[in-house]
């Protein structure tokens, strides 16, 4: 049985769903962040498979940019988490509700 575009898209969709589940259910800020990375990676997989099956390299260039932006995003996000931890002594989502009355 030949592996087609659909197979890759199904893997990408399942990985995206796993990342979403992690973002919603996990309460540790760092694990939430890792689940976000998982979702970004599933989008990368979908883009690369589209690029392969349309014989068009633009998708791969897009993935290249996504990887770069994700690296910048991880650096800034982790710096924010460290700054938050210094103020509150916690990296737990339920302890960081200062906007709530």
């Amino acid at each position: 049985m030949n592996v087609g575009l659909e197979h890759y898209l199904v893997v990408s969709a399942l990985l995206f769903a796993l990342g979403l589940l992690g973002v919603i259910t996990r309460r540790n800020l760092l694990v939430v962040y890792m689940s976000l990375e998982l979702m970004l990676n599933s989008a990368n997989l979908a883009l690369v498979s589209f690029s392969r099956f349309n014989d068009n390299l633009n998708g791969q260039v897009m993935v290249f940019f996504i990887i770069t932006v994700a690296a910048a995003e991880v650096a800034v996000g982790l710096a924010l988490i460290v700054a938050l931890y210094r103020k509150r002594q916690s990296a737990h989502v339920e302890d960081l509700t200062s906007m709530k009355l």
Partner: peptide, 23 residues
């Protein structure tokens, strides 16, 4: 497997190397 060899290398170097070390 999708013939994106450069991206596979970048994925290992940047994600598995740099980003995860930061984490």
């Amino acid at each position: 497997l999708l013939h994106a060899f450069f991206l596979a290398a970048v994925q290992v170097l940047v994600y598995a190397g740099a980003v995860m070390v930061l984490f």
